[in-house]
Simulated scan of single mutants.
Amino acid sequence: MEIIIERLQEKDAAELFKFESENRSYFEKSVPNRGDEYYNIENFKIKHKELLEEQEKQESYFYLIKDQSSSIIGRINVVDIDRTKNIGHVGYRVGEIHTGKGIANKALKLLLTNISSENINKLHAKTTSINIASQKVLERNGFTRVITDDEEFVMNDQTYRFVHFVWSRT
């Protein structure tokens, strides 16, 4: 499947809310819950506007992963950008019906190409210890596993740890 990534825009709010709502239970199986307030449309619109402001200030970059018909099938972001060190943190999520198709891998490759003009030289990422697919996506794109947290956390009645990765421009 061919995909593109596009920077988040104001016009994306309604479709993005639908995507997040439809995939909520799927996402919450592998990442911490965002809380019920996130799924209230009025709160979502406020958060969307805040993300656009953060992007405008170049503190973060928010991308939508889209298929050939321009439908949202995932998200990939660079957040908490430290311009003094040219470092950011990457995260991504792909809708349930699109998993297992290499979408996250392709999106991360596109992101790494896109940020080459943004002077970001290092990216950090983390995933849960059970999310082997995400760990493989990171490793395939040149990220190196650096540490697994000693501290455990409970999510969905299961105990997990975070696994941390880093990517550096060579």
Rank of each mutant, 00 (worst) to 15 (best):
I5M: 04
Q158V: 11
I72C: 04
F19P: 00
Q158D: 07
L16E: 06
I41R: 08
N119W: 06
Q58L: 09
K18F: 11
T159Q: 10
K49H: 13
Y61L: 07
D157P: 00
N43D: 11
F27D: 01
I103Q: 01
E59G: 09
D82C: 13
K45W: 04
L51A: 11
D82N: 15
D149Q: 14
V146W: 06
L110C: 08
L52S: 06
Y160D: 10
K29A: 08
H89A: 01
S71P: 07
I46E: 11
W167S: 02
N86G: 14
Q158C: 10
E2N: 15
E59P: 00
E59V: 06
R83T: 13
I72R: 03
I72P: 00
T170A: 10
V78S: 04
G88R: 00
T113G: 09
Q68N: 11
I76L: 07
D12L: 00
M1T: 10
G91L: 07
N119C: 05
N156K: 08
H164F: 09
E152F: 07
N156M: 02
S117R: 09
N77H: 15
G102D: 09
G74Q: 03
I81W: 02
K109I: 07
G95N: 03
D82H: 07
K126H: 14
Y63T: 05
E37L: 09
I130R: 13
T113Q: 14
R161C: 11
K66T: 03
S168M: 13
K29G: 09
M155C: 06
E22S: 12
T84I: 10
K57I: 06
H164V: 01
D80T: 02
Q158L: 12
S30G: 15
N131Q: 10
E152M: 12
K136G: 03
M1F: 07
E10I: 05
H98I: 00
K45D: 06
G74I: 00
N43G: 12
S116D: 13
K122S: 15
S70V: 06
Q68M: 09
N86R: 11
E151P: 02
V154S: 09
I76A: 10
I73Q: 03
I97W: 05
Q135F: 00
E56C: 07
I65W: 02
I65S: 01
G88C: 06
M1K: 11
E59D: 12
N40M: 08
N40P: 04
T99V: 15
F19G: 01
N77L: 08
